[in-house]
């Protein structure tokens, strides 16, 4: 498996790793049998993602994509953040190996789930 330098950078130096206390929204995707689980926690202030953290069980691509997602989402409005796709994350990482595009590239789904969770809570 050959990864881009940007993937390796996010893998080796993951951004926003961890779990927020009392988060406004939580999203979790994947399952351990497939080898990928991603958990996103967010804080929302003035309709913007004021803080975001991730936890990932998975391969190099799984860790790098979740780390990349947190960088892309931080500070964005919820509407903007919802528009982030797995494809955009892969592009930002200068590409992923073809077979990793589907299995380990789920971070955007986890974020959307966290945003949905937030709306459910505020209603």
């Amino acid at each position: 498996m050959v990864y881009s330098d940007k993937v390796m950078d996010h893998f080796k130096n993951p951004r926003n790793m961890g779990e927020l206390e009392n988060p406004d929204g939580i999203g979790e995707v994947g399952n351990p049998i497939c080898g990928d689980v991603m958990k996103i926690t967010i804080k929302v202030k003035d309709n913007k993602i004021s803080d975001i953290k991730f936890k990932t069980f998975g391969c190099i691509a799984a860790i790098a994509t979740t780390s990349m997602l947190t960088e892309l989402a931080k500070g964005k409005t919820l509407e903007e953040a919802e528009k982030i796709t797995n494809q955009i994350i892969a592009q930002e990482l200068k590409g992923l190996p073809a077979i990793k595009l589907h299995c380990s590239n789920l971070a955007a789904d986890a974020l959307r789930m966290a945003i949905k969770d937030y709306f459910k809570k505020v209603k």
């Binding site: 498996m1 390796m8 893998f11 080796k12 497939c34 080898g35 990928d36 069980f57 998975g58 391969c59 190099i60 691509a61 799984a62 860790i63 299995c103 380990s104």
Partner: peptide, 26 residues
């Protein structure tokens, strides 16, 4: 438990240690 082999290998490789894994991810 709780971790994935390709990622273990990736961090070991960054420390100049070459290994292999039976993980599906690799």
């Amino acid at each position: 438990k709780y971790v994935e082999g390709e990622a273990i290998g990736g961090y070991l490789d960054a420390e100049e240690i070459n290994t292999s894994t039976g993980s599906a991810c690799s």
